[in-house]
């Protein structure tokens, strides 16, 4: 009985997520090739934006600022073998990226020729896709600036 094969079940469901006014504005910007951030009531610039201030639960302000897609890597993790759902299908780094003008980090992929080029504090810029749909993947990845 020890050679009984191990059954594999695949659980798969499609989802359609309504975004709400704040995330909708962020995603609409991405579709148009723009990166938008919002401010908390204490003036902190959040990118990605939230409906609220994560530290207090208070609603965010209606004050928005546009960022230009350049930033600094706050931290990174190297992925040698990408999974089927990863942004890039070649070795890449998952990064926390502090966009210029933001007070929070954005999670995205950074493409470099090899792992040796990755460093905390390195400057990166967004590489946009030509065809954009309103999704974080409208930024294909970030690359060294």
């Amino acid at each position: 009985m020890s050679d009984t094969p191990v059954p594999i079940d695949t659980v798969e469901m499609p989802y359609v997520r309504t975004l709400g006014p704040v995330i909708s504005r962020f995603f609409t910007g991405l579709r148009d090739g723009e990166i938008w951030a919002n401010k908390t009531r204490t003036g902190k610039v959040q990118c990605p934006p939230f409906e609220y201030d994560p530290y207090t639960g208070e609603s965010a302000s209606d004050d928005w600022v546009q960022l230009d897609g350049t930033g600094t890597v706050s931290s990174w993790a190297w992925v040698e073998e990408p999974l089927r759902n990863h942004l890039l299908q070649e070795p890449f780094a998952w990064c926390l990226i502090r966009l210029d003008g933001a007070d929070t980090d954005l999670v995205h992929a950074v493409r470099v020729a090899d792992k040796g080029q990755m460093a905390t504090g390195m400057r990166v810029e967004a590489r946009w896709r030509d065809e954009r749909i309103g999704h974080l993947r409208d930024i294909e990845c970030f690359e060294p600036a």
Binding site: V11, M13, Y15, Y52, P54, Y55, T56, G57
Partner: peptide, 21 residues
Amino acid sequence: DLFEGVMRPELFLNDAMGGAG
């Protein structure tokens, strides 16, 4: 969690519920 397809959504919703700290 399968209903929204987000595993343990409290991880990201905590802040929205004023739960930080």
